[in-house]
């Protein structure tokens, strides 16, 4: 129901009393309201929906889960990619 796209905060400032920021979505930069993310800092990733940051991405969690999923890949056994690996 809700399109939310992850982007990296590149700049923080205040406008009309709101915490605002510039968010880089893979080379496309858009202003976002970050008022709902009191702890977010420049360099952090956020999910933006209709111009509002709704979440600060937990990058450690993401790394761990992906590692786990890739491990599952290894454990899956006779994968052709594995057979070809040096």
């Amino acid at each position: 129901m809700c399109l939310g796209i992850p982007g990296k905060v590149t700049e923080l400032y205040t406008a009309n009393g709101m915490k605002m920021g510039r968010v880089d979505f893979g080379g496309v930069v858009k202003e976002a309201c970050l008022e709902y993310l009191p702890d977010i800092r420049v360099g952090d990733y956020t999910i933006v929906h209709v111009g509002f940051g709704i979440s600060q991405l937990d990058e450690d969690e993401a790394r761990q889960t992906l590692a786990l999923l890739r491990e599952m890949d290894m454990l899956a056994g006779e994968l052709p990619e594995l057979a070809e690996a040096p």
């Binding site: 893979g26 080379g27 858009k30």
Partner: peptide, 12 residues
């Protein structure tokens, strides 16, 4: 282009 891909993601 990666930027076009990104802009499309952003706007749905």
């Amino acid at each position: 282009r990666p930027e076009v891909h990104a802009a499309c993601e952003m706007l749905g």
